[in-house]
């Protein structure tokens, strides 16, 4: 395994691309559009070359979107009425 990974690391270096571990570290900035254009381009090229990182990035992106679309949770309207009464009492409205 170590020969294979050493060769892959060498290949990425020769291509001027980040390693898988670096892509992993860039994931947040990449998805948030915070990377500079050159690094963004290099990450994209790495993702085209490396299936594992491509799958990682897609599932990382999905994880982010799942957090952004949680089922709706709302307070009971009756409880809101109780809070209003409570605040009015406390605040002296």
């Amino acid at each position: 395994m170590s020969v294979k990974t050493r060769m892959m690391k060498w290949m990425f270096r020769m291509m001027g691309l980040p390693t898988c571990e670096e892509v992993d570290q860039f994931a947040y900035d990449f998805l948030e559009g915070q990377l500079d254009p050159k690094t963004t381009h290099q990450v994209k090229r790495h993702l085209k070359t490396c299936k594992n990182c491509h799958r990682f990035m897609e599932s990382y992106r999905k994880t982010r979107s799942l957090g952004q679309s949680p089922p709706s949770i709302a307070l009971d309207p009756e409880f809101k009425e109780k809070i209003l009464e409570f605040l009015s009492r406390k605040g002296g409205a």
Binding site: M1, S2, T19, C20, E21, N52, H54, E58, K62
Partner: peptide
């Protein structure tokens, strides 16, 4: 998961699972 900066474990792409699964409570 990394060796020499390279992923050593195969990553499955579960982001392509059916959308119904992601909508489930």
């Amino acid at each position: 998961e990394f060796e020499n900066g390279i992923r050593v474990r195969e990553i499955p792409d579960w982001s392509k699972l059916p959308e119904e699964l992601f909508a489930k409570k």
